[in-house]
């Protein structure tokens, strides 16, 4: 029973801390929230860390050139509040995993985006804005539009 109380209390902790933490770095200032990219690549590294989690993945073009992309994601507190665990996400985003990532690219034209969703080969998806406030599909503006 004591364990149940702790679990509930931790849930409450997530709940009370889950509001507006993602928006504190001016997402719409760095990213074009009206432009959407869909990229197929391979995971290099996932970091579940403050101030925002990060997904690093490589994308190869038709000429074989590799661009090192990164995605800005929700912070650990928000990811956990959405029901995801570090163990789960580290396994899903293990290095070498083929992945399709959708999001809004940087205004600077660099290979960085704000995360919308990620889909693995088996259909597993970090979507519904669980992982970030970016666009999940072309034609849809991401959150944080200014």
């Amino acid at each position: 029973m004591r364990k149940s109380i702790i679990v509930l209390a931790v849930l409450a902790g997530f709940l009370v801390g889950s509001v507006s933490l993602f928006a504190h770095h001016g997402t719409g200032t760095s990213y074009d929230m009206h432009k959407v990219v869909v990229l197929k690549g391979v995971v290099q590294r996932f970091a579940m860390a403050n101030p925002h989690s990060q997904l690093y993945f490589d994308v190869k073009d038709d000429q074989g050139n590799v661009a090192h992309w990164s995605a800005e994601m929700r912070n650990p507190r928000n990811l956990e509040a959405e029901g995801h665990t570090r163990k789960e996400l580290m396994e899903k985003f293990a290095p070498g995993t083929p992945i399709t990532v959708t999001g809004n690219p940087s205004k600077a034209g660099t290979p960085v985006l704000v995360f919308g969703k990620a889909v693995l080969a088996d259909g597993w998806c970090l979507c519904n804005h669980d992982g970030g406030i970016g666009s999940e599909a072309p034609g849809v503006a991401g959150g944080g539009v200014e």
């Binding site: 760095s30 403050n50 925002h52 990060q54 690093y56 990164s70 800005e72 660099t110």
Partner: peptide, 17 residues
């Protein structure tokens, strides 16, 4: 972690190469 984020995401997103 903040430094890693800055070098990996924040700075390139803002054009600070």
């Amino acid at each position: 972690e903040e430094q890693s984020f800055n070098q990996g995401v924040r700075n390139p997103a803002g054009g600070d190469l």
